[in-house]
Computed example of a mutant assay.
Amino acid sequence: MAGYFAILLVLLTLVSGLIWLFDALVLAPKRKERLVLAQSGAAGQLPAETSDTLLKEPAVVETAKSIFPVIAAITLFRSFLYEPFQIPSGSMMPTLLVGDFILVEKYSYDVKDPVWRKTLYHNKLPKHGDVAVFKYPEQPTVDFIKRIVGLPGDRIIYRDKQLYIEKACVEGQTSGCGALERVAQTLLPDNQFYQGQLPQSRYREALGENGHDILVTRGVPDQIRGYYQQQGTAVDEFMVPAGHYFAIGDNRDNSRDSRFWGFVPADNLVGKAVFIWMSFEFSENPNSWLPGWVPVGVRFERLGKIE
């Protein structure tokens, strides 16, 4: 089921629309009848002020008619086209930072209704390397954002901070699948990210059409004891079931993802993150007089397409 805000928008749209419709079909004709009767009794000499009073819409109707087009447009836009999200954590660094505001393309995958999230139209499927927003399988009212690294039928291994993928072969495919391959990583020299006091290494990972950057904290061992245990596989190996996806964060040692709770059902997919439209910087100084949620700057250089 959708989040509370989506449900609220749909309810506001329905209520305001029904009030407008009820007024148009029932209340407005009655107001006109009263005006006609009053004009007949006054022999056509009814003052303009009285006519305006008789035709005046109730305040609730006036409010509904003013907000319905706006609320309906917002509901349609965020339900079927694009929905804005704010990045709340560092699990997708360096691709996405805390304070980034992004647009998620809802029609990139299956189009779903905004309340019950039942599929209305089957569209494209996620690809390796997509940054996707989905309903957290363990708490479906919460939205998560991670990178899709495993498609249905894929075999995934994450070992010693290295990703390996054995892509499933689809019908008619004879190359680029069926063999376990190491996803190439290239160390980037310019990096200033830290996990606590530990420096992080930044790599360019060759997954997807153009690749993307990831962070690895060499001083933090892989937390394999907390990994999701799948019957018949090694502790750091995962076989993606049909109708599911494997998603992990770009901040590999600071992300709770499919390695720890399992797979993302296709029905949980919300859309593909495609664009950063605003990015605020916040103070990390604990002695600052400003509240932590107050922006101290705008990172204009971050605005643009998400890799």
Rank of each mutant, 00 (worst) to 15 (best):
E281H: 13
G297D: 13
A273M: 07
F300A: 14
W261I: 08
W289C: 03
S279C: 01
P286M: 08
W261G: 05
D253L: 03
P286C: 09
P295Q: 14
E237L: 02
S279Y: 10
V296R: 12
G232S: 00
F263R: 09
G304M: 04
E284S: 12
F282K: 13
E281C: 03
G262S: 04
G262W: 05
Q231P: 00
G232I: 02
K305W: 14
G304Y: 07
A273R: 06
P291F: 04
P295R: 14
G243N: 07
V274P: 02
A266D: 15
L303C: 04
G304I: 04
G262R: 08
D267V: 09
N285I: 06
G249C: 01
G292W: 11
D250C: 05
N287T: 10
V298H: 08
D257V: 01
T233W: 11
G232F: 00
G271N: 08
P291S: 09
F280R: 13
N254L: 00
G271W: 03
H244V: 02
L290D: 01
G304T: 10
F275N: 03
W293E: 13
A247G: 00
A242S: 14
W277N: 07
V294D: 03
R252I: 02
W261E: 10
R302S: 15
V298K: 12
L303A: 04
G304L: 03
H244L: 04
A273G: 09
E281M: 12
A242R: 14
D250G: 03
P295Y: 12
N268S: 15
F246W: 10
K305H: 11
R259H: 05
N251Q: 06
A234R: 15
N287A: 08
R252D: 05
G304S: 10
P265N: 11
P286S: 11
P241H: 02
E301A: 11
D257W: 00
V235H: 12
G262T: 04
G292Y: 12
I248G: 01
H244Y: 13
I276N: 05
N251K: 03
R252S: 06
A247N: 02
G262L: 05
V235C: 02
K272T: 07
P265L: 12
N285R: 10
S255M: 03
A273P: 01
V274M: 09
E301H: 12
